[in-house]
């Protein structure tokens, strides 16, 4: 292995004066600084996660996970209903957002480039739709909350409920699902499509039997990302889901997700130990989600390598 070591040999025939030693020292300084920055980032992560897991871990036990909160000023009880509510909300939100998002992405990628699409109206709509997805992705979550509050909670009179929250949440995760699905579709080689169409399959047959299955790991990644988004989100649900710590029995019931519960514990009852415990549960969930996403993407890139 050849090292990029510096030496003092200067080239006799070049009359150039250049203080290479200083330059190498300058480089060493900046490289060390960049190493430090990378290290700091990892340390921040270890500090935040480590603290939450260690401190919160003390409060986490079977009882916390399986008993419902009892309300009260010191946050008595466990977090079982908030775990259930979190799952309800995740399920309901994705039930709304996934079909919409995947269909939208399929149209934007698979139909937008069609020859028959010479209609100026359609072209304009597609351009606006792409722009809208980008805009949605940039809107801060509290705005989705406000929107959900005025439209679903008040105007449509759904009240603070799972329904209002999941509709607002669906708007929030829609751009994530559309974008990841678009990327997954773009990664499917055109030969697959041509091969199927050449055999006399219709466009929809080609899509449903060839293209979508091939894009499935990418689409699933988008869905899992959205699960993480719903689990972590607080602002939207703070103003659409209400704050009842009871177990919702219908989609018109109010509730509390884990993240919301953490907020109430920390801000209203100042029960920091229980809040930390809830935080630890949240962090573990997010960690698992990241793990699954990384596994899928590793499998994806491994597949790509094999094709090459």
């Amino acid at each position: 292995m050849i090292g990029e070591r510096s030496s003092e040999i200067t080239l006799a025939h070049t009359a150039k004066t250049r203080n290479l030693k200083t330059e190498h020292r300058v480089q060493k300084f900046w490289f060390s600084l960049m190493w430090l920055f990378g290290l700091i980032t990892v340390l921040i992560l270890i500090l935040v996660i480590g603290y939450v897991l260690v401190q919160g871990g003390k409060a986490v036990n079977w009882e916390l996970l399986t008993t419902p909160p009892k309300g009260g000023l010191s946050g008595e009880g466990g977090i079982s209903t908030t775990i259930a509510t979190t799952f309800y909300l995740v399920g309901l939100t994705l039930l709304i957002a996934t079909p919409l998002g995947v269909s939208a992405a399929v149209y934007l990628i698979e139909y937008a480039g069609e020859q028959s699409l010479s209609s100026k109206f359609l072209r304009t709509m597609i351009n606006i739709a792409n722009f809208a997805v980008e805009t949605l992705a940039g809107i801060p979550s509290i705005i989705f909350g406000l929107f959900g509050y005025v439209l679903f909670v008040s105007t449509l009179k759904f009240g603070f409920s799972l329904l209002s929250a999941s509709l607002a949440g669906a708007c929030l995760v829609l751009p994530t699902i559309i974008r990841t699905t678009e990327e997954a579709l773009l990664a499917v080689p055109d030969d697959y499509r041509r091969g199927s169409l050449a055999l006399g399959a219709t466009k929809w047959q080609t899509l449903s039997r060839i293209v979508l299955p091939a894009a499935m790991p990418g689409i699933i990644t988008g869905i899992i990302l959205s699960v993480g988004r719903v689990i972590s989100e607080t602002a939207v649900f703070y103003v659409t889901l209400g704050g009842s710590y009871r177990l919702p029995t219908s989609i018109m019931d109010s509730g509390r997700t884990l993240a919301l519960h953490l907020y109430y514990l920390a801000m209203d009852t100042r029960a920091f130990d229980k809040a930390m415990g809830t935080g630890a549960v949240l962090v573990v969930m997010i960690f698992l989600i990241n793990l699954v996403i990384n596994l899928i993407s590793r499998k994806l890139t491994a597949g790509v390598r094999k094709v090459r």
Binding site: V42, V48, S232, A266
Partner: peptide, 28 residues
């Protein structure tokens, strides 16, 4: 090798719920 540690760390930092950061700030 170092990239494969730092990049997932960055990714994980992005995924931590904002209330957890808030709680950390509040308590520490």
């Amino acid at each position: 090798g170092v990239q494969s540690i730092v990049r997932p760390a960055v990714q994980l930092l992005a995924g931590i719920p904002s209330v957890v950061y808030g709680l950390f700030g509040l308590v520490i």
